[in-house]
Every structure is written in C-alpha cells, then in structure tokens.
C-alpha cells in the first residue's frame, strides 16, 4: 500500500527542495573551485553550532511558538560548563561533570520557558523574551560580562577531532539531527507537535496532553541549545554571554527556508537540513569572499523576506 512509497513527501515540497538542491550543488562547486578542501572543512566546523541552534528553534516554531532565548541558553549552558571545568580541574575523568552541568542547564532553562507557556499560558514571545533577559542577566552576573577561559586543553582539542576525516562535532550535529528527524517523522510526539501547532484545541479534544507537548518542545529546544553552546565552548575555547547573538536571525531564516511554517504545524527534517547546509555554505562563501557581517545581515534579512513573499504569492 503505502509502506515504502515515501508517503510523507507531499508534492508541495518538491519545487523548493529541488531549488535548494540545485543552489546547494552550485554553491558547493563554486566553493570547491574557489577554496578547495579547506573551504569544505571550514563549513564542516562551522555548521554544527548553527545547525543545532536551528533545530532548537525549529521545535517551538512547529508547535506554533518561538524561542527567542536559544542563544542565551546556549551561552549560559557553556558558561555553566566552563565554570564547572574551573571547579573540577583538568582531569579528563571528571569531564562528564561539566558536560552534564551544561546540558542540565539547557534542559532546565528550556523547561522553564515551556512551563510558562504550557501551564501559565503566557504568549511564547513574552515567555521566551522574559527568560532571555533573566538568563542573560544571570549569565553576565556570573561572569561579570567577561569570557570564561582557562579550560582544560582537551576541550579545544575536542573541537578539532575527526572520525574518518569528519569533524567529531559535525557527527554530533548529525546525530542530533537524525534524532530530531525521527522524533518529528516517526514518533507519536512528532504528530502531536504538528497537530498542536495547527490547532491546539482540537488536539486537546483528542485526548492529547497539549501542555506536555509544549513543555517537551521547549525542554528539547533548551537541550539542543545547550549542545550548541558546548560545541561553541570547544571551538572558541571560552564561554561568554553574547557570543553569536546574530544567529537569531539566521536560525529563523533557516527554519522558514527549510519549510517550517512560521504560523506553526508544518516542519520536516530533510528540507530543514538542506536549508542549514545551504545557508552555512553561503555564509562561509561570503566569509571567504571577504564580505562583512553587515552585508550578511542585509542578505539574510532580505532572503527571509523573499521566502515569506514567495510563500505568500504561492498561497
């Protein structure tokens, strides 16, 4: 019947997916010609943190919400991990402790936003905005606004490690992406998440605990943010509130470009991955070409508006 025939590829994704693939291929070829393998490897090192943040943004968006605090969560988790490293010292045997502290920070801070949205029914923009202010404030208080450095040497070394030539952090991102993909595409939770994004009341009437769906979405968003934060910690060999704040726009852009309906409900992994790779390749390409960050801001903002306009014209 429908078991093997890719039932969840509605035709409306195809033109976009095709366009993305063509652009991607073009970008990769151009990049390879320009920079060669060095370029590809720089993409592979920069992509994981960005991709993880996009995943962190995607789940709340599918549920019909938004998480403006993902970067504050990522940085706060990295700060907590860095401070814990400072406390436990250089022993690699104790390394799981700071990691765990960072991930737990992400889960807790995400869950708190989820609680505000799910049980107090505060609008997601306000809940995550209030949380953003609190988390940033707490993070700055804990660090006096400075970068936390002096990490054990194995932390930055971790960022450079490869498995079969592929950076380890890229594999971490890939694993997270696959898990999110399975969650969205293969589990009941994924169906519930999408149903909540489309029509929460009807979903609740079908006996689904919609408050829990929100809570889990924001907790996972926090967890993914924390993983991104830890990747940044390793790559920059330091943690500071305010790192990579400009990613807020690009994560939204990647999510919307990746077929997630900003009004909630629709979202799948593969188009999302295509958008992440496409954007990172373009960003790295722009970087290589010496374009400055302001040019990128204009380009990303314009691209986001263009995608929204494209969707509007098609509907």
């Amino acid at each position: 019947m429908m078991s093997l025939s890719l039932p969840d590829t509605p035709s409306r994704y195809r033109p976009l997916g095709l366009a993305a693939t063509v652009l991607l291929a073009g970008g990769l070829i151009a990049a390879a010609l320009a920079g060669g393998g060095g370029f590809l490897s720089s993409v592979a090192y920069q992509l994981p943190e960005f991709g993880l943040l996009v995943l962190a943004m995607a789940l709340p968006l599918i549920a019909g919400g938004i998480n403006l605090a993902i970067l504050a969560i990522a940085n706060l988790s990295a700060v907590v991990a860095a401070l814990t490293f400072g406390a436990v010292g250089d022993s690699p045997w104790l390394a799981p402790l700071p990691l765990f502290a960072g991930l737990a920070t992400g889960c807790l801070t995400g869950a708190l936003i989820g609680l505000l949205i799910a049980y107090l029914r505060i609008a997601p923009i306000i809940a995550s905005l209030g949380a953003l202010l609190v988390y940033t404030g707490v993070g700055i208080l804990a660090t006096n606004g400075a970068a936390v450095t002096g990490l054990p040497a194995f932390v930055p070394a971790f960022a450079g490690q490869t498995v079969a030539g592929i950076p380890l952090i890229a594999l971490i991102f890939l694993a997270a992406a696959i898990l999110v993909g399975v969650l969205l595409g293969r589990t009941p939770y994924g169906r519930y998440l999408s149903a909540v994004g489309y029509n929460e009341t009807a979903t609740a009437y079908s006996g689904i605990d919609t408050a829990r769906i929100h809570l889990v979405a924001y907790t996972l968003s926090g967890l993914l943010g924390a993983v991104a934060g830890l990747v940044m910690l390793a790559r920059f060999n330091s943690a500071r509130m305010g790192y990579a704040d400009s990613y807020l726009l690009t994560t939204l852009l990647a999510a919307v470009l990746g077929g997630i309906d900003p009004n909630g409900g629709r979202g799948r992994l593969l188009p999302l991955l295509a958008a992440i790779v496409l954007l990172q390749v373009t960003a790295s390409g722009l970087n290589l070409a010496g374009a400055n960050q302001h040019f990128s801001a204009v380009a990303w903002g314009g691209l986001l508006l263009a995608k929204l306009a494209y969707d509007r014209l098609r509907s």
């Binding site: 999408s194 149903a195 489309y198 009341t201 009807a202 009437y205 409900g265």
Partner: peptide, 8 residues
C-alpha cells in the same frame, strides 16, 4: 472545529 486538525 474541535474534532479535526484541518491542515493536517
């Protein structure tokens, strides 16, 4: 309205 999630 309450029984179906129309866009799904």
């Amino acid at each position: 309205g309450l029984g179906l999630v129309l866009p799904a």
